[in-house]
Design a protein around this nucleic acid. Structure first.
Lengths: 213, 213
DNA sequence: GTATAGGTCGATACACTGTATTGGCTAGTG
DNA sequence: CACTAGCCAATACAGTGTATCGACCTATAC
């Protein structure tokens, strides 16, 4: 015991805590306690809590590797993998895009994507990758936020209206938001998967149009 | 004195604090102090701090009104307006998409967008609006995060590499990320405006392709 | 006019946060 | 053996969101 501790062990402990009880459960005291150490001990390995969060994000990026042939498959695969990572680590959705990430695994992912973009000219590649990243970050965050809200308001409710109960019903009954009410009533009830993929394909289609022009 | 206090006054005070000193400066104690009240006084008007944050987001949504004719202009205008709001209220970028927003102004914006989407069929409208929202949220968040990082590391540095100083230089010198290094060296240096708009047009192009097919 | 009841407001209290400081222990050297 | 240097952790501090509870103020009833 008193295993010599390391950045890696600290990050792993923090991730375990975050996976189990959410980001709010990651306090330096609890992380340290999980490692049988006093809180101040951690400051020999990390400078600040923000750095720990950055390291956690970087660690998750290690799981995200692009796959497939051609720029379209590559972009799609990294988008899909990012989403999957956020489903395994919901806290990832809160952190993604919140601070510029420059850790080695994050850079490696970016590098692999760019490398796979083949001969596409840089004037297109740069905004295309940025756009996909932005879309994925926003999408995933909203999806996780909705999942949490659902979970918080009774475990088994699926319907959008029922989720927030009487409030929305009353609000729609006022007739102040007719277009919204119509969509909720008549619109398609897309699953999270479908919504994510449809939007992604919109974006990829737009990029493709530019590339092949 | 002892003006009777109200949700509105509380939200306005909180927004003023957040605009001036960032989200972290919004504590119930400070908000209350700005209104010459004790902290507990606020709990007569809001149930929890999260509710206050939701109200702040809702208030900003009041500034975001779609404009223009046709679905494309409408989506573009609301995207642009959202981005502008986040530039005036940087904390808005941290909150957007972090929780489902059901405040009246937020719903009103959604309603106006949907109403303006004209005769486009709902199976397309729903994922299209969701995608644009996701893209905007992700884009804006990353943009603000980068701006903050720039600001934190010396006020006048513009270059991506210089921003994080020697670390990135060393990292690129290792040759582990050749594709990334190439892009940083040879790629276009797009302004935040250009990046945002280009990505948005990609997405809108993709949506348009679906609509007109 | 006085006494009592009710209800609102805020001071205090609690558990917790990230981090600076400081004290004590340990290990290595003369 | 004496002493010193360095490291680790306990304590301390300023702050957080919020529950609790006591005091005051008002308004009604006698």
């Amino acid at each position: 015991m008193l295993a010599p501790l390391s950045r890696d062990r600290i990050v792993r402990a923090a991730i375990q805590l975050a996976d189990a009880d959410g980001l709010a459960a990651v306090s330096l005291r609890k992380v340290a306690a999980a490692l049988d150490a006093g809180p101040m001990r951690l400051y020999g390995y990390i400078a600040t809590k923000e750095e720990l969060l950055d390291l956690m994000v970087n660690a998750v990026h290690a799981e995200i590797r692009p796959a497939g042939d051609g720029w379209r498959q590559v972009l799609r695969s990294v988008a899909e993998a990012t989403r999957q990572a956020a489903q395994q680590h919901e806290w990832f959705a809160d952190l993604i895009g919140g601070r510029p990430q420059l850790g080695p695994h994050t850079l490696a992912t970016g590098d692999a994507v760019l490398a796979a973009m083949g001969g596409v000219d840089l004037d297109t590649v740069v905004p295309a990758v940025a756009a996909v990243n932005a879309y994925v970050a926003g999408s995933v965050r909203r999806e996780i936020a909705e999942r949490r809200a659902e979970r918080a308001s009774g475990m088994d409710i699926r319907q959008f209206q029922a989720a927030n109960g009487p409030y929305l019903e009353r609000t729609f009954a006022t007739g102040r938001f007719p277009a919204l009410a119509k969509v909720v009533r008549d619109g398609p009830h897309l699953s999270a998967d479908e919504t994510f993929r449809t939007g992604l394909e919109f974006l990829l289609d737009g990029i493709e149009a530019r590339i092949s022009s």
